[in-house]
Design a binder for these strands. Structure first.
Lengths: 228, 228, 228, 228
DNA sequence: GATGAATGAGAGTTCATTCAT
DNA sequence: GATGAATGAACTCTCATTCAT
């Protein structure tokens, strides 16, 4: 963990220029981010109702009071976590720039991205699962998320159209449902890994198994979109 | 299990000995079922932590004390609900008797069944989502569910083998992952319908939309298993 | 106050008639009244904001949870206390039956009653002072108190009219302001006794002093209403 | 006390060397007064316990830290407000110089002053009501207020004696109780206007109504002191 | 003289659970 | 088998106050 340095240290930094610039203890942004990070863990493992603000504050090495100072309430903190998680997911997707690739290649990349993102952010998966269980009432209220979506469909539509024109993607595919399926194949595997592993008595979350699943997801989608 | 005799029955037994043989009012069983039903609603909409014991008792038109009388604790009630829900899902699946059908036909039927079951039991979907968020610790502890699974894989394997032999299913398909995908395509659509509808600004849960999705799920899986 | 008798007490009373009737621990009404009484003390000495629910519960020998069980919140308990206090004050006034007396005699009795009531219920005085400081927002919201008032003015009017007709009360007196003055002379003496004593360096709350004040109040009002 | 020099002053000192002798901006005093004014509003509407330090600081457009810098604590600020309010009330009374008037005229003027002062300083009325509810523990501790009182009684006594000698004031009037009554008639009308208005369903605080009350107060007192 | 960040104690409130009948 | 009263622990949230700059 980074060592905290007070203003005292900073002043001495003026005299000794070799001193590395350090993060101060009284850093609003730092505290805020620590709270958000701790909250993400707590909410994603226990849900909104099951999460404890004391635990969040403690894990963030912050005072409980700070949580209310910055976020107002448990629910607003939850929403902040949700917005950040959902936002960064959409953001990552947007950065894919799939339009530069050939249609089938682009879709394959997308499926792989979906899988990798789920794998690397299982906390977000859990978070979204919890939010969906509650009817997504919080996400629906969020203004920040209103605009984030939508354009996705346009990208898929364009890819599908190009593929159809080129002759290597079959016509008549609904872009929304294709997108849902691409998500579903990876998301469900991670969101339900606990019950799935129990059900099949097979450690589905091992690296080897994950590699298998990744290929399977690509396979399913590519088979589906293939021109006959 | 001991036969329940209500106080009503007792009283009438005292005053009139020539009573009807045994008036099995079984309020006991009825109360128990009412509690389970109410608990399923409460747990599936609010999660384990968010659910309120008082609400469950009230919705079941039962006294709160009865809940403890029959189930011991909130957590045990939750487990009972989970077991019942998960059990009946597996039970329904077992009753499909798919081995009588041609392999491709059987799998198509299965996919459709998956979709229909999800649609008709969205409460169970939510319940499972919540349980998975918690790492499925309760379901893993359940003895009753140990045995329920497993045989599923055998059925799929048999179907796949038969199809391959017959030449209309491609070889090399992993039955576990096929099963997971069959589940994923329907489950995710329902479990995440709240965020999906918000994301796409399209009422994905309308009957027309559901019919579309059902066909899409079948299409995806059938394309995948098709022999080239 | 009626003595509560539980079924237990009743039963034992049947077998052993000499048994003293006992107060049961689990008596809803008793707990409720104890809470109200404790709350009256706490609210009247510290105000709504300064009062502590823990103290109220402890003084009532009840569990803090019971306070919420019966009253819902601190504010609602406060309102209940207020309604009870204000209600019993008005009730006592109504029972005076002053119309049976000669006009001047009636008004003299009323002034004396005002003084005596203030003296015997200084808690209520303090309670009302606090509520008035808050703009009486709680009392104004109370439905129960809507109807309690008003008729008072009619009584005074009748008395004044009779006195005027009889010739021993001067005409032209506003009954509302007379009532306010009758209240003010006693109420203020008690509500502000703390600052008054400090200001005059004279122990104004001694019995002797109170007797003096009582006579003074009567004197002032009687001088005012006297026909010239 | 150290002379305050604001940053504003400093800056202008830098740019214009030919400065005015000493530009005593005294933000210090201004901030202090702003805090007192804001505190008076907050304490008089919510009481000591109900008042919020943050609100006071915000309303004074000052930093919360300044409140502690100048007053040490919430309670000491409260005391400062009380002392100021009570002091200025007594001060105003002292400035009446009633000894120049004829006795009855002087008392009439005094009653009118009481009424007018209450009307113009209803905040102080509320403040005193709150303090009295708490047993006036703060005012009693205040050294500044020890000396303020007392002389009032001498003035009244002198007026009464003069009136009695002159033959137009009746003998035997207790000056303290007369003073209390003069206060009571106006104070109570304002301190309890909220409940009174509610009780009588009559907007007692309208200008017309206030004029009526003022005359009534004078009438009551003048009738009382009149020689028969 | 002024400020935003931080704090610990304690407030009101809620909850699963149990007691007495 | 059923009920209303009772409980204590724990939770979310608030507040006056102080630190570091």
């Amino acid at each position: 963990m980074a060592v905290a340095v007070t203003s005292k240290a900073k002043k001495s930094a003026l005299s000794a220029k070799a001193k590395a610039p350090l993060e101060p203890v009284r850093d609003a942004e730092r505290t805020k981010q620590a709270l958000l990070a701790a909250a993400e863990v707590e909410f994603s493992t226990k849900g909104l109702a099951g999460a404890r603000v004391d635990v969040i504050a403690e894990q963030a090495a912050a005072n409980k009071r700070m949580l209310y100072y910055y976020f107002g309430s448990k629910e607003e903190l939850y929403l902040a976590v949700l917005e950040r998680a959902y936002g960064s997911m959409r953001e990552a997707e947007r950065k894919l720039n799939l339009t530069d690739l050939a249609p089938r290649e682009a879709i394959k990349t997308w499926v792989e991205f979906k899988f990798d993102y789920c794998q690397q952010h299982q906390q977000i998966i859990a978070l979204l699962a919890g939010e969906n269980m509650l009817g997504a009432v919080h996400l629906k209220r969020s203004r920040r998320l209103r605009d984030m979506n939508m354009s996705l469909v346009d990208v898929i539509s364009a890819l599908l159209d190009a593929g159809v024109a080129k002759g290597d993607i079959r016509p008549g595919i609904d872009p929304v449902h294709l997108y849902i399926s691409m998500s579903a194949l990876s998301y469900f595997y991670f969101s339900n890994s606990a019950t799935l592993s129990a059900a099949f008595g097979r450690a589905l979350s091992s690296p080897a198994e994950q590699k298998l699943r990744r290929a399977h997801c690509v396979d399913v989608i590519m088979s589906y979109i293939a021109a006959r």
